[in-house]
């Protein structure tokens, strides 16, 4: 499993920023690069005030043509299964890509903590990512190392960076 994490701070109260991230993702989508839409496909209140959410992310990243040809347009995106605690301090999530759905595992937790003496919020995003080796076996041996590096780079840098942009965009929504 490949771990990744990032920490983002914003000068907004915890409750405001966490509520925006939970409830206003469709509004945030236009300000995120390469994200075409975010749609809430399921929302269910469960015990103890927790909330289960499924958000459908549709993306249009700039990919090399060879990769682009391999992934049909309707497969560019993922379902984000999230479980929010009632106090909005934690969200556990699992991502289910439309492309190679069984082969890629990506899950983690987002914690929201009060920061800056109550004037701001720290969001800590941690997760793990794994690709089923069987899925890679379809890739020619000579390309497998490069493919693994590419995937790790995407996970290790792109996902945390997009998380940062999401939090910053949520803060901007509150201004």
């Amino acid at each position: 499993m490949k771990p990744f994490s990032t920490l983002v701070g914003v000068r907004k109260p915890l409750r405001d920023i966490a509520t925006a991230v939970r409830d206003r993702l469709p509004e945030i989508a236009p300000s995120l690069a390469d994200v075409t839409s975010i749609r809430v496909t399921d929302r269910e209140e469960i015990a103890d005030g927790c909330l289960r959410l499924v958000n459908e992310w549709r993306v249009d990243p700039k990919l090399p043509s060879a990769v682009r040809q391999a992934i049909p347009g309707d497969r560019l995106g993922w379902n984000d299964h999230a479980l929010w605690t009632a106090d909005l301090t934690q969200c556990t999530w699992r991502i289910e890509p439309f492309f190679m759905p069984g082969a890629i595992r990506c899950a983690g937790t987002t914690r929201f903590e009060t920061a800056m003496g109550g004037r701001g919020t720290k969001a800590v995003f941690t997760g793990e990512f794994d690709v089923d080796p069987a899925a890679l076996s379809r890739i020619p041996v000579a390309w497998r190392g490069a493919a693994t590096s590419a995937i790790e780079m995407i996970v290790g840098s792109m996902i945390p960076r997009n998380f940062r942009k999401t939090i910053e965009a949520a803060a901007a929504l509150l201004d």
Binding site: L7, G9, A115, R119
Partner: peptide, 11 residues
């Protein structure tokens, strides 16, 4: 990242 005055001070 996180080098703005407020977050830096916090961290």
């Amino acid at each position: 990242e996180n080098r703005d005055v407020f977050m830096r001070a916090d961290l």
